[in-house]
């Protein structure tokens, strides 16, 4: 059981610092909130922590899924890149690993992820990916002062309003997810 502090693409387990809800003792409201998670075979420790606030979890799960998986607009890969940019700024090692792997799976371009893992926030990427990544970094790191240049760069790359809206949400939902996952527990290497 090794705690992981550095970014990695290896499979990780997330271990909470706080107690999880015991399924055998869950209230009807908690069970209802737990049901809507995409992984129906096994409920993760993360979701069992969040189930302590069932009312919030019941809204959050479908919101997360709609932001990352809705039809049309920004590509699935583009949304994963937004998630990855946020997770790198906020140093959420677990979120980064999950979404980097998902990006590779969807886009079949491991070199983009490799460069982000090598150079971090200074990653030198193909222009389209660079525009998305930089916008995500900027919005996450200082929402009070997002570079207008980053926004125009998205336009130059041909993103339309709906695609930009989808990118904003994919970055923002990881401003949420990172603040839970990175603060309420830590990743361990799978044994």
């Amino acid at each position: 059981m090794t705690v992981v502090h550095d970014f990695t693409l290896e499979p990780l387990d997330w271990h909470p610092y706080v107690k999880t809800v015991e399924l055998s003792q869950a209230t009807p409201e908690q069970l209802d909130a737990l049901k809507v998670t995409p992984s129906n075979t096994k409920v993760s420790a993360y979701v069992l922590v969040l189930a302590q606030e069932a009312e919030t979890l019941a809204e959050r799960t479908p919101l997360f899924n709609d932001i990352m998986y809705s039809e049309g607009g920004l590509s699935r890969g583009g949304r994963e890149l937004g998630a990855l940019a946020a997770s790198f700024v906020n140093h959420c090692v677990y979120c980064a690993a999950v979404h980097a792997n998902r990006y590779i799976q969807l886009e079949k371009r491991p070199e983009v992820v490799d460069e982000i893992y090598r150079s971090g926030l200074d990653a030198d990427l193909p222009e389209y990916d660079q525009a998305l990544f930089n916008f995500g970094v900027d919005l996450t790191a200082h929402p009070d002062n997002v570079g207008v240049y980053q926004f125009y760069h998205l336009r130059e790359m041909g993103l339309d309003d709906l695609e930009i809206l989808d990118l904003i949400h994919s970055v923002a939902i990881f401003g949420w997810a990172n603040r839970l996952m990175h603060t309420l527990g830590e990743p361990h290497r799978k044994d």
Binding site: V18, V49, L50, Q52, E53, T56, L139, T140, P143, D144, V146, V148, F151, D161, I164, L165, L167, I168, H169, V171, A172, I173, G175, W176, A177, R179, L180, T183, L184
Partner: peptide, 23 residues
């Protein structure tokens, strides 16, 4: 968990508002 959820939600909302202002 309540506190973490409140902090996380409001930060999400802050990012959405900041992004929408650019649009």
């Amino acid at each position: 968990v309540t506190l973490a959820g409140l902090i996380a939600f409001v930060n999400y909302q802050i990012l959405v508002v900041a992004g929408l202002k650019m649009l």
